[in-house]
């Protein structure tokens, strides 16, 4: 195989990784501030994807306008759903055991996933890409799908935006302070639960954004929520729970790994290589947890 082919795969892997990062960064932010692992994050992402699909039906498919409307409308809608969930449910369990928190979010998965099925049905759907992003870009003699390149640009923009927000704004300072010293922050007169609600909404906004981007990236069906949440777990564990930078690294590792491994395995002569490569995120997650439980970027607790 030529170097070019591997480069092609690398770029595709990176754009897959960027998409994963957008979703996983929401999960890790929420964990960092709220100390709750939100199983329902994948379901919110799925709802975002299906909402984008419904919106695209209302407008002329494939127009740039409809794509922008989806990008502007859907993520805030998911954030509003997040607000409702946080305000009515999550708030009650911040001080509860891990198990109860996990189970609450798992209950939400059961409910939300079935609601999605009731509303949209089980058929796979797809959203037409806007013409502007539908073609391909030639790059060193390779034809790269424009949409992948577009995601490759959006991902770092989101990462940069998150970094600026977390480290250069008051809101970000409050969030980071909530991670380390929630009680002190409260004693200083900050409304900590409002910080938590906002963070949760931001996380959901990211899930919604990921959903919109995914809806034009590949087919969407009822399985994507479950599938993505496990991948996000892998990403977040590899990078370190609560670390946004870690999530970026983890996403790229998983994205590139998923695209490269089938080819690598096949070239060594493994049968059914593309199927075996699916094991990769889990294996990676297990290895990192065994060797460095706090992740590549995290710090050991206590």
């Amino acid at each position: 195989m030529s170097v070019q082919f591997y480069l092609f795969l690398l770029i595709n892997g990176l754009s897959l990784g960027m998409l994963l990062f957008i979703i996983a960064s929401g999960l890790t932010l929420v964990f960092g501030v709220l100390r709750v692992i939100n199983f329902a994050h994948g379901s919110l992402y799925m709802i975002g994807a299906f909402l984008a699909y419904s919106l695209s039906l209302l407008m002329t498919g494939g127009s740039l306008f409809s794509f922008f409307v989806m990008l502007l409308v859907v993520p805030p809608l998911i954030a509003v759903i997040g607000f409702v969930l946080e305000y009515t449910l999550f708030r009650r369990i911040y001080r509860a055991e891990h198990l109860l928190q996990l189970l609450l979010t798992y209950a939400l998965v059961l409910i939300l996933d079935d609601l999605v099925r009731l509303v949209w049905g089980g058929d796979p759907r797809n959203v037409t890409r806007p013409e502007f992003l539908a073609g391909s870009v030639s790059f060193f003699g390779m034809a790269l799908p424009t949409y992948n390149v577009f995601i490759l640009c959006i991902g770092p923009a989101i990462a940069l935006g998150l970094w600026l927000m977390l480290y250069r704004t008051r809101a970000g300072n409050l969030m980071r302070a909530t991670v380390s010293y929630p009680d002190t922050l409260g004693a200083l007169g900050v409304n900590v639960s409002w910080v938590m609600t906002s963070t949760f909404m931001l996380g959901c906004w990211l899930a919604g954004l990921g959903g919109v981007l995914m809806s034009s990236f590949a087919n969407i069906d009822l399985a994507i929520g479950m599938e993505k949440i496990i991948e996000c777990f892998a990403v977040v564990v590899i990078g370190g729970l609560g670390s946004v930078g870690g999530a970026l690294l983890g996403s790229l590792i998983i994205g590139v790994g998923i695209t490269w491994l089938p080819v690598l395995l096949a070239s060594v002569g493994v049968q059914e290589a593309s199927r075996w490569a699916l094991v990769f995120p889990y294996a990676m997650m297990a290895v990192v947890l065994i060797v460095r439980p706090w992740g590549l970027f995290g710090k050991p607790e206590r």
Binding site: H98, I230, F233, V237, E272, W276, V279, Y282, A286, L289
Partner: peptide
């Protein structure tokens, strides 16, 4: 058992899914 709390939960999840995938493939 080398891990506790949430990390234990996630590692068991990872191993469980790993085994699931192996049986699946």
């Amino acid at each position: 058992v080398r891990l506790i709390g949430l990390y234990f939960a996630i590692l068991t999840l990872a191993f469980g899914q790993l085994l699931y995938m192996v049986v699946f493939q």
